[in-house]
Design a protein around this nucleic acid. Structure first.
Lengths: 136, 136
DNA sequence: AATTAACTCTATGTATTTGGTAGAATTAAT
DNA sequence: ATTAATTCTACCAAATACATAGAGTTAATT
């Protein structure tokens, strides 16, 4: 399962995609529209900013806006920011590789072999889904 | 990511698959072979028993053995026992359906629409992988 | 019959993650 | 100067993950 944080992030990005190139949006409005706790959403939008998906204007009448075109943001990269690896085991992750603690021989590991296939399929489908597909 | 419990369960099932129709195995031996904490493995094997994958003999020289043929056990069903839904959002899960708390209109929800595709792909690939594929 | 070595079951414990809140600081248009 | 927004850091409670502990049950062997 995906974390709520990640789901909220996706909802926020959908909101901002619908408003793409039409100025910024208030956190409060995104929160209301997406039914997301405002203070929690603030954190999420900051994360999205640090990750380079959104930009912000501070001060009176400030807010958030999408930097990249909706089509140029895919689900895989957003997922990774909030929930980390797409892979189900760390040893097959490209972006978050870690050796499994219990593993004695990674080369011959059947779990690694099979879960590499799963990861690759998941990665491909999540890469195909972008925020234009969400708002259509 | 998959829980360690689920990974340990898969490792145990691989062990038992390799020993299919050759009598039972001791928890201690599976634990040693899989580098799994024995007491934790005991719980897991019990869960696998309650889920109908393995059988056991009690008492002196007792142990666990696979009930179903390795080919007849797929990854999707094992995953569900330990980590629950394959779906990334509860609203697209068949076996663990729940309405999302923050959802206002499930019918028009773009997240539901897109994540249903992801779930279906994941489900298919995980169903294809069985324990014969693991031991080959 | 006693011993031994296995599974069974329930309770407990600790560390991490998740989901969120609080509040002060900063910024900039009005 | 005021107002209304973002920024940043700290904190907190509940749930989950990852075990460990120990008593009880079972059945082959001696």
């Amino acid at each position: 399962m995906m974390s709520k944080k990640c789901k909220y992030a996706i909802k926020a990005l959908i909101c901002l995609s619908e408003n793409y190139q039409q100025g910024n949006m208030f956190t409060a409005d995104i929160a209301k529209k997406g039914n997301i706790p405002k203070k929690f959403l603030e954190q999420i939008l900051l994360d999205l900013k640090h990750a380079g998906f959104v930009g912000s204007h501070q001060g009176y009448r400030g807010g958030y806006y999408l930097i990249k075109a909706p089509k140029e943001i895919n689900l895989a990269e957003v997922y990774r920011v909030f929930d980390g690896a797409i892979a189900l085991v760390p040893c097959v992750s490209v972006n978050y590789y870690e050796k499994c603690e219990d593993c004695t021989d990674e080369v011959s590991c059947a779990i690694k072999r099979e879960f590499a296939k799963i990861k690759e399929q998941s990665r491909l489908i999540m890469k195909e889904i972008n925020f234009k597909t969400f708002i259509e």
